[in-house]
């Protein structure tokens, strides 16, 4: 099996003489390959570029696109774009957070769900909208979002 560290090493070997301006592309590639940025990954990237780990961590946490926990089996993307906002996506997000007991960027302890807040996902006609593993759920309310999540849970228990 190819370990996560091997993946990181492979990515870094393609950026042999990279300087600090390659930091973000490298982090993106690592996340693409590993699903998230582990502590190990941040340390390795920092060492490779000759940057302090704190600086790399600072840059990575600045951007919403980077996550620091592995994705859950169901990855939920809640849209907080303008149209969804107008249609009440703040309440939807709140309801999901409460149902799962996680903050945006986190993964539930059982590893089932991870929550991500995204800007516009281009489905404004369906607002407010969320996307679970590529499946879109339209015109949500606090209650319907909760029901949808519970359905995924049930589906998991059955299988």
């Amino acid at each position: 099996m190819v370990s996560m560290n091997d993946n990181i090493d492979a990515i870094l070997s393609q950026h042999r003489d990279a300087k600090r301006d390659s930091l973000i592309p490298i982090l993106q590639e690592v996340q693409e390959s590993c699903g998230f940025l582990s502590r190990e990954a941040v340390l390795k990237v920092a060492k490779h570029l000759g940057l302090p780990a704190g600086k790399v961590y600072g840059v990575a946490t600045f951007y919403n696109q980077f996550r620091f926990q592995p994705q859950g089996k169901f990855h939920i993307q809640v849209c907080r774009g303008t149209a969804c906002h107008v249609k009440g996506s703040a309440a939807v997000l709140e309801s999901i957070k409460r149902t799962l007991n996680v903050e945006a960027g986190q993964t539930t302890r059982d590893g089932l769900f991870s929550l991500e807040v995204v800007a516009c996902i281009g489905a404004c006609g369906l607002a407010p909208v969320m996307c679970v593993n590529g499946e879109f759920h339209a015109q949500l309310s606090s209650d319907s979002a909760k029901d949808i999540i519970n359905n995924y849970k049930k589906q998991e228990v059955k299988s």
Binding site: P52, G54, K55, Y57, G58, T61
Partner: peptide, 20 residues
């Protein structure tokens, strides 16, 4: 020349602190 701390996160959530 130590860089033990840096800005982390963004906007109103910004914190100065060590890595991770």
């Amino acid at each position: 020349g130590v860089s033990a701390i840096d800005f982390t996160k963004r906007g109103s959530k910004t914190v100065v602190g060590p890595a991770f």
